[in-house]
Write a protein that binds this DNA or RNA. Structure first.
Lengths: 325, 325
DNA sequence: ACCGTTATCGACAACGTTTTCGAGATCGCT
DNA sequence: AGCGATCTCGAAAACGTTGTCGATAACGGT
């Protein structure tokens, strides 16, 4: 190997990890040879021996625009600290069952990765062999250190915005009831309404499953009523866009006849017409924070807080206006 | 280790890789113990020894919606074949310089991954140590086996659609001139115009850099003219959406006063208003095909064709109509 | 009953690192 | 000059697997 540089393998190893105990000029010479030969030490062998790889694993349930933005933040933070990223996706329907991440992790955590970020909607508790941080899980509280955004406060901002505009009859289109995020957004809606002294009409609350296809019908139900709401808060942008479509298809003008607010601030929200008022999640920041948390754990520090919640931001665009008198 | 199962490590290894030379019932027993102990063999050690890991690496320049869809196809194909995916992203601006994928690859290909997929706009030729397939590179011809979509035919379909509708003055908003894909789309535009016996007015050709921000100005230039075109073909959807915005901002109606066609069929295209007519790239299929190509190479087969081009599809929505008489 | 063949299994080396520890060299001090 | 302290380096073990090969047992044929 690089012992053709005149020294032993041990010395080379010391130079690479710049350990104490190797002479100035020897190190210099070894470095030169390394450079010259374009030598890269094998992660695999290092891992086998020292259980440290400089790789952090990111388990993504499925690659989608949502996780994508998160990954950018993770990527940036990891790079700053010298760690490399290893995204890992079960990717499929069948495999994304509960326990998938457990199995993946146990296989990888053998030695391949130093720590892991779980970017999966449903996470499984348990003591993993390596540091693990859950990123924006949609499920309930967990043993794992977690980073997500403040769904409750976000929802309050959204509904509050509608209230401030003067809306009284505000409808709600919910997400998948099995996910914590959906539950929180409904709770936020109800609380804000209550705080404003407004009654929640049960007929104005529907579930749309977080997806476009499944929210057309409930949207029609909400808007078809004679006493239809003057504003609708949808638990995510996809459903909000569907609401605007349905509204326009039955002759309602947005925002004059109907105000719509979404949640997530996906790219589509900006180009929709009218552009959608929504709650932006700091995805980039979430990814970044989660990574920093993980890195701290890798350094052996106990994280100051096990659960970080980041603030959301209200993005006012064109889909909201005061109700017609 | 699992020699607590009463046999030697060698035998366990043989059972796991079900090799010839181990008795029926011994194998059975070992398998039971493995199951019971939830034992997972270390990829790392296996890799070090046998240079085969069952992992294929995917190098992504940056996680973005575009690569995301590709990854899904890759993911599906890999799963079907028992291979696991390892996405790897330089992620950043600085590192995504030329040569980044080379370095990453040389580090990983040591032994960690059996083969690699390059999902990067600019690819670097060279003999890698492991099988490599380039996926949808935007650069020119290469030594590497490549899978991408037929930019030329796609463009012809787009411009042909406008011609068929009766448009004569058709403008073109191009991409980044340094990328092969942009070059091909311009060439397709020019050829289709020529085939239809139409003259290309040099004043009707602008470059928008593939991005929204950089295409507002050229869009204004195109539409501000007294003899403005009745239709514009933009080299990607982002620019097409920008064109529609600019048009609407200066009082033009789409599609009555101006028809617009894009390229890519990103999610935003469907929700834009009017919904954008565009050319859909078979991203999922590209990912799938590339993976199958790679798998064939891993099996030692020489791929039948080194360059696969997949057909695009014209998606007619609401942004195109015959020109006003 | 003996020998050759086959089936089954384990000992051992190897993969490329990191880490420990001891040997030799150098240096400084008395 | 002698001795201890310090510095520099390399030999060797270890990480967990796989592949080779030899040993032993079982078996079948004459």
């Amino acid at each position: 190997m690089a012992r053709a540089a005149g020294v032993s393998v041990a010395t080379v190893s010391k130079v690479i990890n710049d350990r104490y105990g190797v002479a100035r000029q020897t190190a210099e010479r070894v470095r030169e040879v390394i450079e010259e030969l374009g030598y890269e030490s094998s992660i695999v062998a290092r891992s086998l021996r020292s259980h440290r790889t400089g790789l952090i694993g990111v388990l993504v349930a499925e690659f989608e625009p949502f996780s994508t933005e998160l990954l950018k933040g993770v990527s940036a933070a990891a790079r700053d600290s010298g760690y490399q990223l290893l995204a890992y996706s079960g990717g499929g329907t069948a495999e994304s069952q509960v326990g998938w991440e457990r199995r993946s992790l146990s296989r990888l955590s053998g030695t391949l990765i130093d720590g892991a970020l779980l970017v999966t909607p449903t996470i499984v508790d348990g003591n993993y062999r390596i540091p693990v941080v859950a990123v924006d899980p949609h499920t309930g509280p967990s043993d794992l250190p977690t980073v997500d955004s403040d769904n409750l406060a976000g929802t309050r901002a959204a509904v509050g915005h509608l209230v401030d505009l003067g809306h009284r009859r505000i409808g709600f289109l919910g997400g998948r009831p099995d996910l914590e995020s959906a539950r929180l957004r409904e709770e936020g809606y109800r609380r804000t309404m209550a705080d404003a002294g407004l009654r929640v009409d049960p007929d104005l609350v529907r579930a749309g499953g977080f997806r476009m296809e499944t929210s057309e019908l409930p949207a029609r139900e909400l808007l078809g009523r004679v006493d239809r709401p003057t504003a609708i808060f949808a638990a995510n942008d996809l459903m909000a866009i569907q609401v605007m479509r349905v509204a326009q298809s039955i002759g309602l003008r947005v925002p004059q006849d109907l105000s719509v607010v979404g949640f997530d601030n996906i790219p589509e929200a900006a180009v929709a017409l009218p552009a959608l008022t929504t709650i932006a999640q700091p995805l980039h920041e979430i990814g970044q924070t989660a990574t920093q948390l993980l890195l701290a754990m890798l350094r052996g520090e106990e994280p100051p807080t096990r659960h970080v919640q980041l603030a959301t931001r209200l993005v006012v665009r064109e889909s909201t206006a005061p109700p017609l008198p």
